[in-house]
Design a protein around this nucleic acid. Sequence first.
DNA 1: AACCAGGGGTACC
DNA 2: GGTACCCATGGT
Length: 293
Amino acid sequence: MPVTCELTHFDPMQIMHSGQCFRMKKVDNDAVETIALGRRLVITPLGENRFSFDCDEPTFEAVWRDYFDLREDYRAIHAAAPADDVFLQRALRYSPGLRILRQDPWETLCGFILSQRKNIKAICTCVEALCNLYGEPLPGTERHAFPTPERLAALDETDMHVCGLGYRAPYLLDAARRVAVGKLNLKALFQMPDEWLFEELLQVSGVGVKVANCVMLFAYHRLSRAPVDVWIERVIREVYGGVTPYPGYGPYAGMYQQFQFILQRDEGTAALASAGRAVQKPRKLAAGCACEP
DNA sequence: AACCAGGGGTACC
DNA sequence: GGTACCCATGGT
């Protein structure tokens, strides 16, 4: 019944910690459980790049091979990175098993609407609360699927506030209603060019440039989109001297950004020191900052 | 363009 | 066990 296969550039634990998805969870040992696409999956590492997936072969091929982006050639993507970009090379070595998932657009849109002014753990907490209250229960687990747009569209703001959404509740409601009435057709957007998709996502209230780019990268697999959050702002400022490197990275800019995001977040100033730059972490000082050029 | 929004996580004491 | 600051921001 379970599928076992050998995979390189694949580490569920690294993906779990990457901040692109909010429902992966460590279970026992080194196994990871994820709830996605209305299903539950447990991945158990068997050593030597071998993994066990607790699903049948047809499901693995039809659902999970795409979800985990297992058809993409990550060796080539790593190899295409500029060799003289010290920080990027270090970031790639830091998370060799990271992949950009192909997540459900609806769930991804919601997750990143909720992400604003929240840290990743807090996002996971409120997404889980939303699922537990309004998502379909999944057999064989206490966990629930992500709620459908129709279900959320039928709620009111107070129903959502109990999930810790705060001021984001009306944003999520707006998104649910747009999708439920067909004003926003998330499936159809797969075939649209980047700029069209981008503009369409920006129409949703609570979705700005950053969130739109996250949805484009993590759901629509637009690998050139590089979301700029506070961590990447620090990378640009402190590692690249205030000049964004992303336009220069070409078609994999968003992919590379994700590796850098993780390194910067995990190691902060230590990463900068290894990048060989004499920089200081700007502890939010008041006016008269000493780093003024 | 500065300022605000709820509230959980967390580093530091 | 306080508590001050931070957080994959966008709207006003």
